[in-house]
Computed example of a mutant assay.
Amino acid sequence: MSLHDDAVLVLKSHEGQDELRQVYLDHLAEHPDGTWKSCHAGHITASALVIDPERGRVLLTLHRKLRMWLQMGGHCEPGDATLAAAALREATEEAGIRGLTLAPGGPATLDRHAIPAPCHWHLDVQYVALAPSDAVEAISDESLDLRWFSYDEVSEVADASVVRLVEAARARL
């Protein structure tokens, strides 16, 4: 099965966000390359909110290019067999934490956001990654900083899309 096929299956089984989910499915139907960065009409991305449920906190990255506190995530790569694998790879690379696992139940939420040219849209499929109790983060080249925030602090530092993701993650746990 291709990554494109996996994305379609994941999105068809995602509950809620019906209109947005259909935008993603329509995009994939129109663009066989819709999971790749080279698709300039927009492309599917995969991200994961790293969460430490024992301590009631999330790990956010201060994104080097955007200079915003965000969850870990990014573009799918040829070695990614599934969207879940892409999200877990991105979270592991950007957080520097080994032993992350994805929370069961598939994506927590979807978020479509505009990005600068040459592409127009990121169609982000957002998962929740659970940190092991002994997690130690390490800043990657893509980050200016990594920091743990309590659930309540997120709204003070991050935009509405990250706050929605935290709410969806907490509802899932």
Rank of each mutant, 00 (worst) to 15 (best):
L165C: 07
A131N: 09
L9C: 10
R164V: 02
F149L: 04
R172A: 11
I97S: 05
S47C: 11
H75P: 01
V166N: 04
M72W: 04
P107N: 08
L60G: 01
V136L: 09
A86M: 10
R21F: 03
G106K: 04
Q71P: 14
E54S: 15
L173A: 14
A103M: 14
S155V: 13
L100W: 08
G105Q: 11
W36Y: 03
T35V: 13
R55K: 14
H75G: 09
T82K: 06
R89E: 07
P78D: 13
H122V: 01
H113K: 13
E94K: 13
E77Q: 12
L49D: 04
H27M: 06
R57E: 13
M68S: 11
I139Q: 15
L110T: 04
V136M: 12
K12M: 11
G73M: 10
A86F: 11
G99C: 11
L20M: 15
D141K: 14
V136A: 11
D141Y: 12
A131D: 03
P104S: 15
A131F: 08
A131T: 07
V154G: 01
Q17C: 05
G105K: 09
P132M: 11
H75R: 15
V8I: 13
G73Y: 01
D145Y: 03
V58H: 05
A103P: 02
A131Q: 04
Q17V: 00
D26G: 07
R55C: 02
V157A: 03
Q71V: 08
A7V: 04
G79D: 10
G99P: 06
C119S: 13
C39E: 12
D33M: 02
D159E: 15
L25I: 05
L11C: 05
T109C: 11
V128R: 04
E142R: 12
R147H: 11
V58E: 03
W36S: 12
L144T: 06
Y24D: 00
T101Q: 15
R172T: 09
H113Y: 14
D33A: 06
K65C: 00
D159C: 12
T92H: 06
H75C: 11
L123S: 05
E30L: 12
L28D: 02
S143V: 01
P32W: 08
G96Q: 06
I44Q: 03
E153K: 12
V23E: 09
D18Y: 04
P116Q: 09
Q126W: 00
V23P: 00
A171L: 14
R98F: 09
A7D: 02
V10W: 01
A168L: 08
A114E: 15
L146R: 02
I44S: 06
K12V: 06
I115E: 05
L11A: 03
L28R: 02
A85I: 06
A138H: 14
G99Y: 09
G79F: 06
W69I: 07
T61L: 15
M68H: 05
T45M: 10
A84D: 09
E156I: 01
I115W: 00
F149C: 02
V163D: 03
S38M: 07
T82H: 07
V50A: 08
P107M: 04
Q71C: 13
A103K: 08
E30F: 05
C76F: 05
P78I: 01
G106H: 10
S140D: 14
E19M: 03
V125H: 02
L100R: 08
L20P: 00
